[in-house]
């Protein structure tokens, strides 16, 4: 009960806070979710992607616009 009261007072009580929480939460979730899926993806495809072989072909002082 104490937990739900805290949540209610912190988030749901004022509409402005509630809406802001949704927006900020959505943004944060999108970033974190993408990072997590990318981490799994890179692990699964280790050695196959461009970022895994790029170091073999870049030259010292070359441009960086191919990351």
């Amino acid at each position: 009960m104490a937990f739900s009261t805290t949540i209610y007072n912190a988030v749901f009580r004022r509409n402005s806070v509630y809406v802001s929480t949704i927006f900020v939460g959505a943004f944060g979730f999108a970033v974190g979710y993408d990072k997590a899926v990318t981490a799994v993806w890179d692990r699964w495809n280790a050695g196959k992607q461009w970022k895994d072989i790029r170091h073999k072909y870049v030259t010292e002082g070359g441009s960086e616009d191919d990351e």
């Binding site: 461009w50 790029r54 072909y57 870049v58 030259t59 070359g62 441009s63 616009d65 191919d66 990351e67």
Partner: peptide, 11 residues
């Protein structure tokens, strides 16, 4: 080809 198979300089 850049960032797929070659670097920008190579391409």
């Amino acid at each position: 080809l850049v960032a797929v198979s070659h670097t920008a300089d190579e391409a």
